[in-house]
Design a binder for these strands. Structure first.
Length: 458
DNA sequence: GCATGATCATGC
DNA sequence: GCATGATCATGC
């Protein structure tokens, strides 16, 4: 360790101030010529994982130790770097923000308050950089550098997330952990190879190595708070839970949401909208959005908790006889992008179906009206995702590569998912790898499968 | 103008 | 009654 550091290593504010000199600059500007030339040829300047490491070593002049405590021990500050990608409306989170590896053997004996997670990640120094493909990491521009800790409003949910993950390990189900299990804090796979597995205390089955991570959508809210402080006007969202007292006794967001709906179940849309004094056109395709927001007390904006947790809201309409007619659609895929995928675990489809869903279930009522029947949170069972959907994904890619784009897996081919057109109309096409254009298509969840999953039996 | 969620239309 | 293809409607 160098003696004369250009910052006070015991003072978080001093570390932050020093970090902020990086803003609008890249790391190479702070290196001497010799070092720069040396690093230019080093292997770790090409891997994005090396970015955090280089910032620590070459800029802060610290050697990251073991993963027991935070990087700046004396100040209790943990350094995290994370990439932003350019979107239509600015630079936003490129990926989830990965925190420490989960030690399955230790977590079962911890409590949230005394967890190693909390000890290590209590105060973060977040450095966000602008990611550009093909650019050496020492030449990437830094956009934000700020101290950050979990806001009080988010703690109940993150604590519940941590406990959900802990619970799964306690039950010997570490190998079935999914990002859809939790809301803001996920457990993402992490390892040198995809095959990295480790033992778990309550089962003989080896589990993939995982790390805690703030979900990508959650990271965007961190960025929004930074931008607000910089004077940017950021569009508002509205919370379901306005007072954290609602989370007392360990009550979960899911339960709070379901409770909010209870007074309205079994009633017609017309009846509910009359009571809530809103106009809902039941023919409009967004009636479900409006009704859901009104019942949750979110007006004219987005549902903050759902956005942060990347929860997908879907309306499901049962026929009079209780059957579900329509399968559930998703955004259209790009034939070329899809055909390039080789790894299921990092595929767009797995990411999509791994999310948590909120189903708002209606039933048709004969006289052209609909009854709000049930609401539920859902995420896809592990095997359905990693066996059934995976096989549909594989087969789809195989046929696209073979140029067989109008003959993709049908509803009768798989219990869970199929492929079908999904565009504005049939002229809405998209190029395939063979150079021809085909109607846009997407993966669907089979109606029958969804019906089984929502557990309505009459 | 387009992406996306939702739903319709047709034919067997 | 279901499979499949096609299209509507809204919001950004």
């Amino acid at each position: 360790m160098k003696k004369n550091l250009p910052y006070d290593k015991t003072d978080p504010k001093s570390i932050e101030k020093y970090a902020q000199r990086l803003i609008d600059h890249c790391l190479s500007e702070f290196l001497d010529e010799k070092k720069r030339r040396k690093l230019h040829y080093a292997s770790n300047v090409r891997k994005k994982g090396g970015f955090g490491q280089l910032i620590e070593e070459e800029y802060f002049k610290i050697r990251p130790g073991t993963d027991k405590g935070p990087d700046f021990k004396e100040a209790g500050v943990e350094l995290k770097t994370s990439p932003l990608k350019e979107m239509r409306d600015g630079w936003w989170s490129k990926e989830r923000l990965v925190l420490g590896i989960i030690n399955y053997d230790d977590i079962v004996d911890e409590t949230w308050e005394k967890s190693s997670f909390k000890r290590k990640n209590d105060l973060l120094l977040l450095i966000f950089y602008l990611y550009r493909e093909g650019i050496l990491i020492i030449d990437l521009i830094i956009r934000h550098a700020r101290l950050w800790r979990i806001p009080d409003d988010d703690i109940p949910i993150i604590k519940n997330d941590w406990e959900t993950i802990q619970e799964k390990v306690k039950k010997g189900l570490a190998h079935e952990i999914s990002e859809g299990d939790t809301l803001y804090l996920g457990a993402c796979t992490k390892g040198v190879t995809k095959a990295s597995v480790r033992s778990q205390p309550a089962s003989k089955t080896k589990a993939k190595q995982r790390a805690f991570a703030f979900k990508q959508k959650y990271v965007n809210f961190i960025l929004k708070s930074f931008l607000r402080d910089l004077g940017f006007i950021i569009k508002d969202s509205d919370r379901i839970v306005k007072d954290n007292k609602e989370y007392e006794d360990g009550k979960r967001l899911e339960q709070i949401v379901i409770d909010r709906f209870k007074p309205y179940l079994g009633r017609s849309i017309r009846d509910i909208s009359k009571e809530l004094q809103i106009k809902i056109d039941e023919k409009a395709k967004n009636y479900n959005d409006i009704l859901t927001k009104m019942i949750l007390g979110v007006i004219n904006t987005r549902i903050e908790e759902f956005e942060k947790a990347d929860i997908v809201v879907k309306s499901i309409v049962l026929e009079e006889n209780g059957k579900l007619r329509e399968s559930v659609s998703f955004p259209a895929f790009d034939y070329i992008e899809l055909s390039k995928e080789t790894d299921w675990d990092s595929s767009a489809l797995k990411q999509l179906f791994e999310k948590k869903f909120f189903f708002v279930i209606y039933q048709k009522n004969g006289d052209d009206s609909k009854i709000l029947k049930k609401v539920m949170f859902w995420n896809m069972p592990y095997a359905d995702l990693n066996k059934e959907v995976k096989s549909v994904w594989k087969e789809t890619i195989k046929r696209i590569k073979a140029g067989d784009c109008d003959n993709l897996p049908r509803i009768s081919d798989n219990r869970v998912s199929h492929v079908r057109p999904h565009g504005r109309d049939k002229r809405d096409v998209c190029m395939a790898p063979n150079g021809k254009s085909y109607t846009k298509k997407c993966f669907w969840l089979n109606a029958k499968y969804v019906r089984d999953q929502i557990g309505i039996t009459d």
